[in-house]
């Protein structure tokens, strides 16, 4: 077909290509700036972990000579061996599990039950009650620390794991209720009604319909709660006194020599102590990402 514009398409070579190629984009400094900021933040966040990792594979002598940030000439695993062989560490682990597992399970259970009621069984004053529960998230622990200490002291529960389980359960309920209520609200009401017409009661609707659809939300909650409770330092410090009742985070602090801090051993225990939360995250990872973005888009 004839070219009505009379343009010459036959030649022109590089000059023509340059003429029709995309115009050079002006330099945009923002991506580079954002990259540098993110890189700085990543280094900032990773540096302590790297420090712990490096100290865990060095002897106390190497660390004492100020070689903390250098890669050791020989990887020393004695710190790990010492930690693993220490019966006190076993006790810390057991205590931490005894606190974390029931407190995580209980806070999620209460959150699921409350969230379902707030989302699917509206009642007079329900919104007010929901706000009251959720507002529990905003109380700083320091405000309730002394009253709780006096309360549990009065009950004779100081230096037991019970106060820590109670408090973590109670403090986990607001976030669990908020997340589960918001998730259940996205489950279509017709599913509940269809199940009820089929003969299901509310408990069956919750356990057979709503919960199986809530795995992403449950995974998020399980990961967050487990991590928070496992890593908690404050409440075990307040409510436990003897070494027999200490949890792992206090155990890390307690692992020090008489005249010096055993950095290498502490580093090794820190890494070992973070393994359960890492395992929980990896276990729920598939649902976790889905859960964190849920509600962002329909469907």
């Amino acid at each position: 077909m004839a070219d009505p514009g009379g343009f010459d398409h036959s030649g022109g070579g590089a000059a023509a290509d340059a003429a029709i190629g995309p115009a050079p984009r002006p330099f945009d400094p923002w991506p580079a700036t954002i990259f540098v900021i993110l890189l700085c933040l990543a280094v900032l966040f990773l540096a302590p972990t790297l420090g712990v990792l490096l100290s865990s594979i060095k002897t106390t002598r190497e660390i004492a000579f100020g070689e903390l940030w250098m890669f050791p000439a020989r990887i020393y695993l004695g710190n790990f061996a010492e930690v693993i062989a220490n019966p006190a560490v076993h006790r810390y682990f057991v205590n931490t599990f005894l606190v974390t597992v029931p407190a995580t399970a209980l806070s999620i259970t209460f959150g699921v039950l409350a969230g379902y009621v707030f989302a699917k069984l509206p009642f007079k004053g329900g919104n007010l009650l929901f706000l009251a529960i959720v507002s529990g998230m905003f109380f700083p622990p320091q405000v309730i620390l002394i009253p709780l200490f006096r309360l549990f002291n009065g009950l004779g529960l100081i230096d037991t794991l019970w106060p820590i389980i109670f408090i973590h359960t109670a403090m986990g309920i607001p976030i669990c209720t908020l997340l589960m209520r918001n998730f259940f609200a996205t489950v279509p009401g017709a599913l509940r009604e269809a199940a009820i017409l089929e003969g299901a009661n509310e408990w069956q609707v919750l356990t057979r319909i709503a919960l199986p659809l809530s795995l992403p939300a449950l995974a998020v909650l399980a990961t967050l709660q487990f991590t928070w409770i496992w890593n908690d330092f404050l409440w075990p410090l307040i409510f436990t006194q003897s070494d027999e009742k200490r949890t792992i985070m206090l155990g890390i602090v307690n692992l020090k020599g008489q005249y010096s801090v055993a950095w290498g051993v502490q580093g090794a225990l820190s890494l070992i102590a973070s393994l359960p939360t890492l395992i929980v995250f990896l276990f729920f990872q598939r649902y976790f990402i889905k859960g964190m973005t849920m509600g962002a888009v329909k469907g």
Binding site: P188, L191, E193, A194, A195, I196, L197, E198, Q204
Partner: peptide
Amino acid sequence: SRRRVAMVFQSYALFPHMSVADNIGFGLKL
């Protein structure tokens, strides 16, 4: 559930995590 009525919803209201067989047999299972 005791009125002996069955309802078909506009949105179908099928349980997404169950197979077709489980959806159909849900009431009998209950």
